[in-house]
Design a protein around this nucleic acid. Sequence first.
DNA 1: TCAATATAGGAACGTTCATTCCGTAAATCG
DNA 2: CGATTTACGGAATGAACGTTCCTATATTGA
Lengths: 197, 197
Amino acid sequence: MAQKGRPRTFVEHEVLDAAMRVFWRHGYEASSITELRAQTGLSAASLYGAFGSKEGLFERAIEHYIAGPGGVSELVGDLTLDPLDALGQMLHGTIAMQSDPAYPGGCLVALSATVGAGGDDDVAARKTVAARRAEDRSGIEACIRRGVDNGAVRADLDPAISAIMVHSFVLGVSTQLLDGVPPAALHTAADLLLTGL
Amino acid sequence: MAQKGRPRTFVEHEVLDAAMRVFWRHGYEASSITELRAQTGLSAASLYGAFGSKEGLFERAIEHYIAGPGGVSELVGDLTLDPLDALGQMLHGTIAMQSDPAYPGGCLVALSATVGAGGDDDVAARKTVAARRAEDRSGIEACIRRGVDNGAVRADLDPAISAIMVHSFVLGVSTQLLDGVPPAALHTAADLLLTGL
DNA sequence: TCAATATAGGAACGTTCATTCCGTAAATCG
DNA sequence: CGATTTACGGAATGAACGTTCCTATATTGA
């Protein structure tokens, strides 16, 4: 059943992991094909043959991120957890992941392609990460809504507003960590944030 | 007392304002000298003669930003205000400024040069904005500390932790606004955040 | 009016960018 | 084995990057 033609000499999973780290460190625009090739070990022909373009590789790298370290944000969708616990686990998991020395630091989705050139070029890349952020936001909101129904969360608050507050905090965490704020302080701050709900 | 030599045909203040907006829209790296020249109206020789380099122009543009719209963050240092009021005014003022249609949207300091190429090139630009973020963080902390002394803020909380929570929220606001979250919702979320203190 | 000083315009610098093309190598299918 | 298909390594593409150089121009101080 193997494919026709010469087989690939690289493992796609490993290539995506290396590319993810490059984009993570530098953002979309500042990641050059030269460095992506160096870190992945791919020739230009192989890279473009397999992923089509820098933008195509970025989208695949984002998928890889979400399937991997970035998956912590989906803890708010765990229906087996108490909503407030789910929020807490998401917050602490996110901070832990973003400060894990095994990764470049911060959040790929929060930091890549927030601003950029006006050209049509990186607009697609920005849309890719903005879409993921929108998912995170609505996931948090749904979790809080369950908490209200559950009685674990204050009923006098608009879940949409609370979700925006929590998500704004989460987005800020990336910059804080890059600025050298200690992870432990952010964990404590996250707990404080949750006491308001 | 006018200077010797041929006088400048541009007004520095206007040039800095135009450059600030370019950096604001695109970030440091994605702002090309070509567009900076187009928006400022300066020739390459004038630009480099007056500011030395792209990085030099960026630093001056950041100063201009802080002296202008970015100055809202310094409301937390207003000792004539009740600390909690000062925090509130800073938060609402920041959200209002970042959603003001007269400006590109978001915060120049929060969005520019958070990530970038590893080269020595833009490291200086990142340090410039990181330093400003550190000032904001400690300003918030000092304000909260005054609130504790004042009795307006809960005494059982570590002001450093509370400041990190508030600042993380502030940093996240930029991305939220760029993602299309309504300013009104962020204003309400800011009020909710302050109720935790 | 004449040297000295500083800005302006514009071409040109070498480098890096993302991407494509070409000849060769390694697999499957008939 | 021959035809086909896919992937590889590496050179080459034109465009854009930040920066510098050169010449002309406009001012001040003597």
